[in-house]
Design a protein around this nucleic acid. Structure first.
Lengths: 233, 233
DNA sequence: TATTGCGAACTTGTATGGAAGTATGGCAGG
DNA sequence: CCTGCCATACTTCCATACAAGTTCGCAATA
């Protein structure tokens, strides 16, 4: 995994608000570990990199701080937050709680068409080569988002999206040692099976199992990348 | 219910960051309906009111927009978001999902001391006069926060706090017509009963019933204050 | 009277300069 | 060699000025 922060950023469009664009770009760069946890993120430097003034950069930093991805320490600097095992587990807990109720709500809404769509997504997931890690993560995210859409819980998914930002960085680290994608896809399949069977109980159980998978690999990943993780404060 | 926005704001302390202070103050004023939903919130005007520059006001607005309490429309203005029934129900759904799992986790952690503390809180709630609506809301919030603390899920409570901002405005409106506080306190008691009995199942059921209470009064409240609510977009 | 175009008065977005505070490295003193 | 002080170079924070867009009223015209 390359952790260089030297990739030239795409030019920003001066048409729409610069601050919003910066927030999106910086967010993905942090989540994809293009910026290393613990690294300093100076307003002036980022402003120079993107050829804008400091003000929109500052406003993007505020949003990033709200998302828990950076920490602004007044008069000291802005730092990419290190990954905390406790924070990952807290986020995972909240995500499991929300998505458990989401699939329960989804059970009442499924029909043949939605099931077919989910099956198609699973087939597409199996077609992704093992090496395309980012591709699988995107497909996995799309699957979970689809579940929320079926349940008619778009807002719940937005909350999950915010919460799981911490988890995502860990998943980008879990290239080699973690659970194979085949296992995760099998778990997806069991969720869809339960939905097709209209069983709220087994659907909930299936997604809880699925979302607890990260707990198995988290300690090893943290041990493998001690520099990116923070000891409990 | 007075909806005047003319109350003189407390002076801000120039020692700690102004933007953060403004965010807190404006947030509570919005939630307590001191600013009316739909009302314009001009950067310049707020800056003049608090005797600060536009910049920290602007940064507070960004955070408020992130919390879903205002909507910044570029070059048009910043508006206090009207209450949307759909948004309230969405927030309620997420809150129920999170707190359901929180109390399940709390069951494993309770002991005689924590139960006694919760009973004391309930007794204090009963001592609050029916007229002191804000006081009861604060006590209710403290009770739920305590449940999260018992479960060791401080982060989950933070998410709930963010999510329930929309619900809170409705609760401040539910002065007269809504469920009596006595009923709500009884529901608190049933939650504690379940915790004391170490029953995850009944504890979860009890808090789900409790958090669905708002659904009974929401339509009436929306109908009683049509100006503060927004039709579905 | 109805309509259309224009201008003035707003709004938020961006840029820039200075103020206050913090970390750091060199230097003097023990 | 070690310790404490101090200047300096950072950082974020706040204030102000300017730029770009939207809204709304009013007047001119058909």
């Amino acid at each position: 995994m390359a952790l260089t922060a030297s990739r030239k950023p795409d030019e920003i469009q001066p048409q729409e608000p610069i601050a919003a664009q910066l927030f999106q770009r910086l967010r993905t760069r942090i989540i994809q570990l293009d910026f290393e946890p613990g690294q300093v993120l100076s307003e002036t430097e980022v402003a120079k990199d993107y050829a804008v003034s400091r003000q929109p950069v500052r406003e993007a930093f505020i949003k990033l701080a709200g998302a828990g991805l950076v920490e602004v320490r007044p008069q000291r600097g802005t730092f990419v937050k290190k990954i905390e095992v406790a924070a990952v587990m807290d986020a995972r807990f909240v995500r499991e709680a929300i998505e458990a109720d989401v699939v329960r709500a989804a059970v009442a809404e499924v029909d043949a068409e939605t099931i077919a769509g989910l099956r198609a997504q699973i087939a597409a997931q199996r077609a992704i080569p093992e090496t395309d890690h980012a591709g699988f993560l995107a497909a996995d995210e799309a699957f979970h988002r689809t579940l929320a859409e079926i349940a008619g819980k778009a807002y719940a998914w937005r909350v999950v999206e915010e919460v799981k930002a911490q988890m995502d960085r860990v998943r980008y680290l879990s290239f080699g040692g973690a659970t194979s994608t085949a296992v995760l896809i099998d778990q997806h399949e069991r969720i869809v099976d339960a939905l097709e069977a209209r069983s709220r109980k087994s659907a909930e159980a299936a997604i809880r199992v699925h979302l607890r998978e990260i707990l198995k690999s988290l300690p090893q990943i943290a041990a493998a990348h001690p520099r990116l993780f923070d000891a409990l404060p």
